[in-house]
Structure formats: structure tokens, C-alpha cells
Design a protein around this nucleic acid. Structure first.
Lengths: 111, 111
DNA sequence: TACTAATATTAGCTGAAGGTAATATTAATG
DNA sequence: CATTAATATTACCTTCAGCTAATATTAGTA
């Protein structure tokens, strides 16, 4: 669950929240984060890189712009990790029902 | 989502995984974590305190022992935060269906 | 009541995460 | 092709989270 190491930073989480609403250019992300956290373009760019390297985001070039999008994989890891706790607030649902309900395809350990 | 700040540490995550399987004494937790991470009793005790203070765990005394249990609330926050991404891997489920399926009672912002 | 067992707390140290400032890179544009 | 716009990278600095070592606390026990 290295995924949580990445999510343990408010700037990175905010970036992901933003990307959850759709693709955004680096500039867009910088603008929002800069307004809310008051950090430099450099710092935001570094966080974007971390998200890329960790597989939480992907980039595509559009001229001189970089368009970022969120990637599902690592976030599903987090979702899966939570499974072990869900019995705490879904006590009546059995495991299979929960999986079906959540539309989860049965995945092997780390796919 | 301060919850993620707490989860952004492997020792704390491991402790929660352990507590997910049921109550454990401080000593039990120390034994496991010590074996796996090679840190001192002091360090583990400090992490247990952080989990307590943050509302991820609760304690009850049993003689000289402290029995820890996981608390659902903060973990649900994480689960809720993930909602915005679930469309990425559950594209066909509409919002209501997802909620019903996951058995989630409609909660107000931060209850 | 002295001793031990279980756990928590405190003080101090250290590495690494995340920041800034400056600079490099790359593509569009006149 | 020189310039500008958008973004990334690098080097360096600083803060603080998490560690250890030592000690305090509290309950059971001989």
C-alpha cells in the first residue's frame, strides 16, 4: 500500500481532486494550487511529477502544454485496502454481496 | 481529509490492519510491529497515541494492559473521499445505485 | 510494601520530504 | 531564427515527523 504514502500530502490530494473533475493542464493545476496553498510553480510541478511517477496521473502533450489526467489503478488499491474495514459500517452485507454491489470484478492479489 | 495524513505512515497502517482483525493489546501490537519494522516499544506506543488522538483507534484498560480497537469513523472519511474517483472503475453505476449498493446511508457533510 | 510487568511519556537527534530560486527545455509565433 | 509562453529540472535549504534512550506511571503480585 505505498499508495497511501503518495496521498499523505494535501497538495497532491488537492491535485487529484481537481483531476477527478476531468483533465487539466499543468497551468490550470498550478493556478488552483497556488491560490489555495501559496506555493510556487516549481513546487506544483514537482508534485505533479510525483503523481506521474507513482502512477496516479498520466500526461499527454498538447503543444507546449501538458494535459494531466487521473489514473484509476492506484486509487483502486486504496479502495481495496479499505475492504478489511468495511464490515465496520456495512455489518449486514456478506463479502460476495458487497463485491457484487460495488461492481468489483474479482481481482488477484495486486493486479 | 486530514485522515490521509494519519494513514501516510506504514507503521500506523500496519497497526490498523492488525486491529481490523479484532482487538489487540498494546503488547500484541508492539510484538508484531517490532518484528516487522524493527522499531522500539516507545515508537509503537507513540504511533498508537497518534491513532487514538486522531480517532482511528480507541483504548480500554484491562488491568495493566491497554486493549486497542479500530474506530470506523475516520476510515469512512477515506471511503467517502474515494467516491469522486469511483466513476473511473464503476462507469455504469449511477450515484444512487452505487450508494444503495454499497449500503451507504446518506450522510451530511462531515457527520 | 517492595518488586515486576505493561505501557506511556519526555527530551533530543536525524533524515528526508517539500519548499524556493534559478535555470533548462521545448514548442509556438512574429 | 529570436523571442516568448508553458513547463520541467536542479541545487540547495529548512522543517518536522518519527526514531531512540531514558524515565515515569500504574496495576498486579509475592
Amino acid at each position: 500500500m505505498r499508495a497511501f504514502d503518495i496521498l499523505g500530502d494535501p497538495v497532491r490530494r488537492r491535485i487529484l481532486e481537481l483531476l477527478a473533475t476531468g483533465e487539466h493542464s499543468s497551468g490550470d493545476v498550478v493556478a488552483v494550487v497556488q491560490r489555495e496553498f501559496g506555493i510556487t510553480q516549481s513546487a506544483v510541478s514537482q508534485q505533479l511529477r510525483i503523481l506521474r511517477d507513482a502512477g496516479f496521473a498520466s500526461v499527454r502533450a498538447d503543444g507546449t502544454r501538458r494535459i494531466y489526467a487521473v489514473e484509476a489503478g492506484r486509487l483502486r488499491e486504496v479502495d481495496d485496502w479499505l475492504d478489511r474495514f468495511r464490515a465496520l459500517w456495512l455489518p449486514r452485507l456478506d463479502a460476495l454481496a458487497t463485491e457484487v454491489a460495488r461492481g468489483k470484478r474479482k481481482r488477484r492479489h495486486q493486479d
